[in-house]
């Protein structure tokens, strides 16, 4: 089965790293296939930024997104740009502090998490992206919790490993208040 994920936000949030880690988790630690692509050039520096991951148990022939099953948005601008591409029946995950979505398709599932605030509680707002990866695994699956954790550990600086694992676990165990 082919699953398409778009991760979006603004430059500097670690969006590209999220895509890379997710793809790595799927291929190396879940032994599936994954194709990870990203936006390049001046448009990738500041402004909306997006990473795309396709995960499949089979060979991935078409390497770019057709219509994402899962959309993560970590900025309002990214939501405005990319929401319309989300598949009917798809999953939207957004940062509840940074994004205010206008729900207009009842077939879709919406999930939110204050990832930036949680990361702030851990002492480093910059790891909001890792909190978000935990929450992605919780609400959308896509990769196994172990695979995601392994991929995080092997992709972040050793000195920040513990903190990143903590951030991942906070996301993984987060329950929306409503």
């Amino acid at each position: 089965m082919r699953q398409e994920i778009r991760i979006s936000g603004f430059g500097g949030q670690g969006i590209i790293l999220m895509g890379y880690i997710t793809g790595k988790a799927a291929t190396i630690y879940d032994s599936k296939n994954a194709t990870f692509t990203q936006s390049y050039g001046p448009e990738a520096r500041g402004g909306s930024c997006s990473a795309q991951v396709i995960i499949s148990t089979e060979k991935i022939s078409y390497p770019v997104l057709i219509a994402p099953d899962v959309l993560i948005t970590m900025s309002q601008a990214a939501y405005n740009t990319f929401y319309s591409g989300l598949k009917p029946g798809g999953i939207l995950i957004y940062d509840s502090v940074l994004v205010k979505p206008a729900k207009n398709d009842s077939s879709q599932q919406f999930f939110s998490i204050p990832s930036k605030s949680i990361a702030g509680e851990l002492g480093k707002e910059i790891i909001a992206n890792i909190v978000m990866l935990g929450y992605l695994v919780k609400v959308a699956g896509v990769v196994s919790p172990n695979a995601m954790q392994e991929a995080i550990v092997s992709s972040v600086p050793a000195a920040l490993c513990e903190l990143n694992i903590e951030a991942f676990k906070r996301g993984l165990s987060y329950s929306s208040p409503n």
Binding site: G23, I28, N33, T35, P63
Partner: peptide, 9 residues
């Protein structure tokens, strides 16, 4: 460009 920039196993 696509093959060069895409990341896979």
């Amino acid at each position: 460009e696509v093959v060069g920039h895409m990341t896979e196993k």
